[in-house]
Nucleic acid binder design. Structure first.
Lengths: 263, 263
DNA sequence: AAGTGGTCTAGACCACTCT
DNA sequence: GAGTGGTCTAGACCACTTG
């Protein structure tokens, strides 16, 4: 594998204040391009919180000078981080650390009759601190039985229930939500996680499989028990790669549709 | 929308032999970067067949000289075409026009018990020239009832039938297959299309929905009629964007799985 | 007007592949 | 060794946003 295709595997130990380094070009490690090293180094600084999500980074010119590389090289490194989804650049304004996914709408997997207002309404059916079952623990990378915050949620479009969700959140990361006033919660989970817990969901993996509805789920959705359903199992990660959420979403298989393009 | 995000919308009329153009830099159209124009121009030359699929293009240095731009600018243009999937570059060897998808395996949507040899065995159950039904015609962008080559195929893994396929191919593009000796056909359709018809599948869109098996399909798969199934509807396009295939693939919904990552 | 990212240049040098 | 793509530099100029 080209060592540059994943510039983040190995990270150079860079002094906190690169200005203090001796003169001369950055020592590019053998077999690794300079911009790959730069990208890895910058990534570390972002993850360390030097520039919090949503804030601006120094200009490319400043960074290039700091790291004693040509502007083009620094641009190349920043480009990597853009493709990686860690930062975004806005012409004329600056370079910003991304504040995470606004939402990763489950609805993109479904096509329900109603035109829909876009974001479905969320009803929290229950909130409990519970020990993680085996699958959740495995996916979250924690010990079986460790405490999680569990939310059971029913989502509706135009008053019509369409998705049932079983959400497991990592503690103590979301401790703030355990006793929080739920009346204030919006319809979107991730913006709330960012706002109330400082947890920024940066990447989510959705696993899609087929199954049938249990009796409780069926009743909530107004369908028959055993009705075919789609199960979307999501693992959401923060910037550092830590899994902060495992979610099981079920919806009518009839309403499912998804499109994939191959090139 | 940034006019550079799709550099192929508008194409500069370039003389066939750019060497003959008057001296001076390429006239970048207003609001369009030079490398975007270059990418569009090169794309035209590829589509026109100047360098057939699988063959090498001139070196970046040669192209840069021909088009009277700096090397870096030409590299940027070529990079576009790489991301677009039209060409690929190999360090030390050259730049090549991609010969199309080797395969876009349907099996990636399924997880069947057997370890599997990778490519499933293909059995052609029928081959007929037939008028296109409404949906096929619509997706293929042809008139309803126009003649297509229809293949019905059963795919098996380790001797176990797993997928039924209903394939509609555009005529007269695949005319060579109408009377061809089927015994010679391999298990993969696209390499054969390239070899026997000169049709290179460059992009495929798969639409996934759920449904139930008809009686014939069920019998072929060894399942009960009405059994839940996944229906993958594929439209395959060649380099020029022309839809050359519409395919309906059905398999056991229980075996379905797919993973999507969001960033 | 000042500061930011985006484009483009011209050239040096390196790494890889073939013969 | 010749030819290819990949990296890196140093600098000019343009386009966009903000005060």
């Amino acid at each position: 594998m080209n060592p540059n295709s994943d510039p983040f595997g190995k990270v150079v130990a860079l002094p906190a204040a690169p200005r203090d380094r001796p003169a001369g070009p950055v020592p590019a490690e053998p077999g690794r391009s300079r911009y790959a090293s730069l990208a890895a180094a910058l990534r570390e600084r972002v993850l360390a919180g030097e520039w919090p999500p949503g804030s601006a980074m120094p200009s490319e010119q400043t960074l290039a000078t700091e790291h004693r590389v040509a502007l083009g090289t620094m641009r190349r490194a920043l480009e990597w981080l853009v493709n990686d989804g860690l930062i975004e650049r806005i012409h004329g304004r600056g370079t910003f650390v991304r504040s995470g996914l606004a939402g990763a709408p489950m609805l993109r997997f479904f096509r329900f009759g109603g035109a829909g207002s876009g974001v479905p309404h969320s009803l929290i059916r229950s909130r409990q601190v519970q020990p993680a079952p085996a699958e959740v623990a495995r996916r979250m990378g924690i010990g079986r039985g460790e405490a999680c915050l569990r939310l059971q949620r029913l989502r509706s479009l135009d008053g019509q229930p369409c998705l049932v969700e079983d959400i497991w959140l990592r503690l103590p990361l979301v401790q703030a939500l355990v006793a929080d006033e739920m009346g204030q919660w919006g319809d979107l989970l991730y913006p709330m996680l960012a706002q109330r817990c400082g947890v920024h969901v940066h990447r989510a993996v959705d696993d899609i499989t087929f199954g049938t509805l249990g009796s409780v789920q069926a009743r909530l959705l107004g369908l028959m028990p055993g009705h075919p359903c789609v199960l979307v199992t999501r693992c959401a990660h923060d910037m550092t790669g830590c899994c902060v959420e495992v979610r099981f979403t079920r919806g009518d298989a009839q309403a499912f549709h998804y499109s994939v393009t191959i090139t």
